[in-house]
């Protein structure tokens, strides 16, 4: 595990910036909800685990585990990793698998190759995806086929005039 604090820029919560003479002490068990940014000129190889949001603008290779937090790969980010997080936003280049308990958002600048398992997904038109997407879905019953087997192809010859009802 890398020492993230030393390597990355830290965005403090707004309260901590107000009055340096009266610092707000945050209990260790409930750290201030900030975010860590891996800057453009930073390259990391290894695993990242933690309890706050993460933005990657640089390069990262390894594994990211931020189960209850958000991970964002910025437009200049280049990541080769497995990501486990609540919500994930991809705007840069990512090769790897995403496991999100919440939402995955892929913007139009993204270039993603890998597998996504998530509760929901939104993809902007024009993104590049070579992906396998699996969303949480309710278990459903297979609807039995009644009468004519649906697997039996029903041939219609295009040369024959189409029924009026079939035109859209």
């Amino acid at each position: 595990m890398l020492n993230m604090r030393k390597m990355m820029k830290q965005e403090d919560s707004p309260e901590q910036k107000t009055d340096p003479s009266h610092p707000i002490v945050t209990p260790a068990a409930e750290p201030a909800e900030g975010k860590t940014i891996i800057g453009e000129k930073i390259t990391i190889e290894g695993d990242i685990r933690g309890q706050e949001n993460l933005v990657i603008e640089g390069s990262m290779k390894g594994k990211i585990e931020l189960e209850k937090h958000q991970v964002k790969v910025g437009p200049k980010g280049r990541v080769e990793a497995q990501i486990l997080a609540e919500n994930v936003t991809i705007s840069g280049h990512l090769v790897g698998n995403i496991y999100a308990s919440g939402k995955v958002r892929i913007t139009k600048e993204a270039n993603f190759s890998g597998e996504i398992k998530a509760k929901s997904i939104s993809v902007e038109d024009g993104a590049y995806l070579k992906a396998i997407i699996e969303l949480e879905r309710e278990t459903k019953k297979v609807i039995p086929t009644i009468g004519k087997a649906t697997s039996e192809p029903e041939k219609i010859h295009m040369n024959q005039p189409m029924a009026a009802g079939k035109k859209n």
């Binding site: 997904i121 993809v123 038109d125 024009g126 995806l129 699996e134 879905r137």
Partner: peptide, 16 residues
């Protein structure tokens, strides 16, 4: 890649 298409089929398929 059209977002609507992906959403449409991802909610109908086990894996898209």
């Amino acid at each position: 890649t059209f977002g609507n298409n992906i959403h449409f089929f991802a909610t109908k398929a086990k894996k898209l």
